[in-house]
Nucleic acid binder design. Structure first.
Length: 464
RNA sequence: GGUCCCUUCGUCUAUCGGUUAGGACACAUGGUUUUCAUCCAUGAAAGAGGGGUUCGAUUCCCCUAGGGACCGCCA
């Protein structure tokens, strides 16, 4: 049996969204599962709209989530000449023909079909006409001579058998008036040249498949196997488009979603393996298969992404997490000096406790990062005279100890509680507000210990 | 309008004719906790509708409804 080879073939006409990333991931996983190869092909034949920045964005997105392709990326535009050769061959063999219809003529037919509410299909006017009848002033396009009789069935690895009447497939254009090949010609040609065994792509390509397999057959090439996966929908139930916000990798990266978490989320979106929810990278490769892919489209669920990310944050080692955090702050927040980074590193266990994203950890760390603590009105009003007095006694007592840890701090706080006939909140809340500016946050001992004596004294003494 | 596809809790899904229809996220309640969280426990929550086939259908078939994709000299 042939070694499995898959590919992901995005066009750089817009940023790659999360649905495309999932398609790439499925292709990659499938090839890895079969010990095969995975390739990347940039379909940049639309010169008008293809942009280098989009290509870079695509490359970065795939790299970020760990979908690495074998070999160099294949640039489709570099291969146009060989595509044209194939078109000529098709022409010579009688599988294609020149169509001299003007654009206006075609447009008019489409319009008329629309008015009559009948489906438009090219009328095959030039299919059997002889060249001698060709008008001199019109450059022809080349159309593929599509089958008219009978029906075609494909055995889709995800969708099962799909049958279609051949006469619903029109004589599609394979070479434009400007002499460049179209997608439905270039894609199968490249897939053949690249030796693809499995084409795994969005099910928006389903109908194209019936065009493309005719190309394979005309050329007597072996057809690859097809698997059309359902598209990801927005919460509104529509196809994810390039214009939907919060749908590119960059958007997730910006709020501090981690690659592993998104990979895990994406693999379980429209695919399942029993009841298993968490898949390590190795497990993803080990268990991924086409049978587990559902046939219905699934919706993107942000709360699920968040909770998956939370899981990965909690289950990563502190060292790894810290490394990711440092990187994240550098790229999306600010450069934090080493002294503060060290404090954060030591405090990660409690800083990550209530975090769903890297951004949450950053926000939780603000009392360490910021030198000036800003106390809002609402919190300020909780600092009563009584509370301030408690703080003053705390300041005095804490000034006398050198080592800050739970053993040294606990007696002080307990004393204050009984001296002032209050509860823990009576002492803890003002302390927390002054030290962090917030009513909420990590445990008060954690805060004090992580800040250290100097910072604690500084902040507390500022409160009159 | 034509062609093709889809339909289990709000969401992602399990079930490959016989289950009290299971899990996860989200949600609600309770408990632990020095606040918020975490954590733990509990709860509410689903087979679109109608016909068949069958001793028995969520599962197989048909119809209806709803949803989606495609219908470019874009990919």
């Amino acid at each position: 049996m042939k070694k499995v080879a898959t590919r992901f073939a995005p066009s750089p006409t817009g940023p790659l969204h999360i649905g495309g990333v999932r398609t790439a991931l499925f292709n990659w996983l499938y090839s890895k599962n079969h010990n095969g190869k995975f390739f990347l092909r940039i379909e940049d034949t639309d010169k008008e709209r293809s942009k280098e920045e989009f290509k870079l964005q695509i490359l970065n997105s795939l790299k970020w989530i760990g979908v690495n392709h074998d070999g160099e990326e294949y640039i489709q535009s570099k291969n146009i000449e060989s595509h044209i050769k194939i078109v000529n061959k098709l022409l010579e063999n009688g599988n294609a023909y020149k169509c001299y219809c003007s654009s206006d003529e075609i447009e008019e037919q489409k319009l008329r079909a629309k008015q009559k509410k009948i489906p438009y299909i090219y009328n095959r006017k030039w299919r059997d006409k002889s060249e001698t009848e060709a008008p001199q002033d019109i450059k022809p396009v080349i159309r593929f001579k599509s089958k008219i009789e009978g029906s075609t069935k494909i055995n889709d690895l995800v969708q099962g058998d799909i049958k279609i009447e051949n006469n619903t497939i029109e004589d599609f254009i394979i070479l434009r008036r400007d002499g460049t090949p179209t997608y439905n010609l270039s894609a199968p040609v490249d897939d053949h040249i690249m030796g693809m065994t499995h084409i795994i792509r969005g099910d928006d390509h389903k109908i194209n498949t019936f065009k493309q397999i005719q190309i394979y057959e005309a050329l007597r090439w072996e057809t690859p196997l097809f698997a059309h996966i359902p598209l990801i929908h927005t919460l509104e139930g529509k196809k994810l488009s390039k214009r939907d916000n919060a749908s590119t990798i960059d958007d997730y990266e910006k709020i501090g979603i981690m690659p592993d978490a998104l990979r895990n989320y994406l693999i379980r979106l429209g695919w399942s393996y029993k009841d298993k929810e968490i898949f390590s990278l190795e497990e993803s490769i080990k268990y991924f298969n086409l049978e587990g892919i559902g046939k219905s489209p699934s919706k993107l669920d942000m709360s699920r992404i968040l909770s998956m990310n939370e899981y990965y944050i909690k289950n990563k080692s502190n060292d790894d997490l810290f490394q990711s955090f440092e990187e994240y702050c550098k790229n999306f927040k600010e450069n934090i000096n080493n002294e503060k980074l060290n404090i954060i590193k030591k405090s990660l266990t409690f800083l990550k406790n209530k975090a769903k994203t890297m951004e949450d950890i950053y926000n939780n760390s603000k009392f360490i990062i910021n030198d000036e603590i800003i106390i809002e009105k609402a919190e300020m009003s909780l600092l009563t005279e009584n509370a301030k007095n408690i703080i003053k006694s705390f300041l005095k007592k804490v000034n006398e100890i050198e080592v800050f840890n739970k053993e040294t701090l606990e007696p002080i706080i307990n004393n204050l509680i009984s001296e002032n006939q209050t509860n823990f909140k009576g002492v803890g809340q003002p302390l927390r507000i002054i030290l962090t500016g917030s009513k909420f946050g990590p445990g008060i001992y954690d805060i004090i210990i992580s800040l250290g004596k100097k910072r604690v004294l500084d902040r507390l003494s500022k409160v009159g």
